[in-house]
């Protein structure tokens, strides 16, 4: 278990990294960017990944935009791609009231030493279907900002994940930031793994929007809700069947159970040695119920 040989470059800035990617690619090399390396390095140690050149984005941490937490006038939250999970976990106030779910979700990301090193951008580009950041991106309508040799692209989360560990980010592009455009005070992420800190068997991120117009003497109503699942398909997926149940409904145990049942019904989860399809379906029902209940409880957080 030692990595195969590779050459190593430190990127001076984003343009430098993009330039190197292009040059090396043209030269027939197989370059790979590394940020925190918490997914890539284990794969390299097993020689399951063997880039010929590693381009280290670490030096770019000195640019505030690459590690910053910022808000746009329209309420969107922008995170620099090199922001670590741990910084996010400890920046509750900076994230703001609409994005508390991001902060809370971080305790599910591996363990403290992994969170101290792993980055938001790295996790999204890795594209694991159970990764908390991938679910959050879909939940909160994130836009992945990728700089390329000629232009900067904005990739909506809905178009980001193409399949098993495959994303829309091109081989000559560098993800520089992620903008979360949909604040969701009532949101939650929860998951199940046999051991705490492991990759989830199933995880879910949900949000709920109250409908002020219909929240009168008969109690509150929902304008809508969003249900995102990981671990049941090659990419994180939204479940419209569950969201339809939530829209216009009266928030409470019955509605949440119905939505969760709809989610469990709608999916076609894989069967593998880690878990049967039946079990993943059942976990989905449980986790969606629990996440919706928690999300509704966060209504007073703002």
């Amino acid at each position: 278990m030692k990595p195969a040989t590779f050459r190593y470059h430190r990127a001076h800035d984003v343009a430098d990294a993009i330039g190197m990617l292009g040059e090396l690619d043209a030269a027939g090399e197989d370059p790979k960017l590394v940020a925190g390396g918490q997914s890539l390095v284990p794969m390299m140690n097993f020689r399951l990944a063997r880039p010929s050149v590693l381009i280290d984005l670490g030096p770019l941490r000195r640019f505030p935009a690459m590690t910053g937490i910022g808000h746009d006038d329209d309420g969107a939250l922008t995170l620099g791609a090199l922001t670590t999970h741990r910084v996010v976990e400890t920046s509750r106030a900076e994230l703001g009231p609409g994005f508390g779910v991001i902060c809370r979700a971080m305790r599910w990301v591996g363990h403290l030493p992994i969170r101290s090193r792993g980055t938001v951008g790295g996790s999204l580009v890795h594209g694991d279907a159970t990764a908390e950041w991938c679910l959050l991106a879909v939940l909160l309508d994130a836009v992945i900002i990728a700089e390329g040799p000629d232009s900067t692209r904005e990739i909506p989360a809905a178009e980001m994940f193409h399949g098993f560990y495959a994303t829309a980010v091109g081989p000559d592009e560098v993800v520089v930031a992620i903008r979360f455009t949909r604040p969701s005070p009532r949101a939650a992420l929860t998951e199940f793994a046999r051991r705490h800190g492991d990759f989830a068997l199933v995880d879910t991120a949900v949000s709920l929007e109250g409908d002020p117009a219909r929240s009168n003497g008969s109690g509150p109503h929902l304008a809508g809700g969003r249900v995102v699942l990981g671990g049941i398909a090659p990419t994180p997926v939204r479940v419209p069947e569950a969201e339809e149940v939530l829209a216009g409904g009266v928030p409470g145990p019955a509605l949440f159970a119905d939505a969760a049942a709809a989610a469990a019904e709608a999916i076609d989860p894989p069967e593998d040695p880690a878990a049967t399809a039946r079990y993943r379906r059942r976990l989905t029902r449980t986790l969606v119920t629990r996440a919706l209940t928690e999300a509704w409880g966060h209504g007073d957080d703002r």
């Binding site: 097993f46 046999r194 051991r195 705490h196 800190g197 492991d198 990759f199």
Partner: peptide
């Protein structure tokens, strides 16, 4: 790997 061989931790 330790991804597949589940050694209990302090939370288990």
């Amino acid at each position: 790997s330790f991804i597949d061989y589940l050694v209990p931790t302090a939370t288990e």
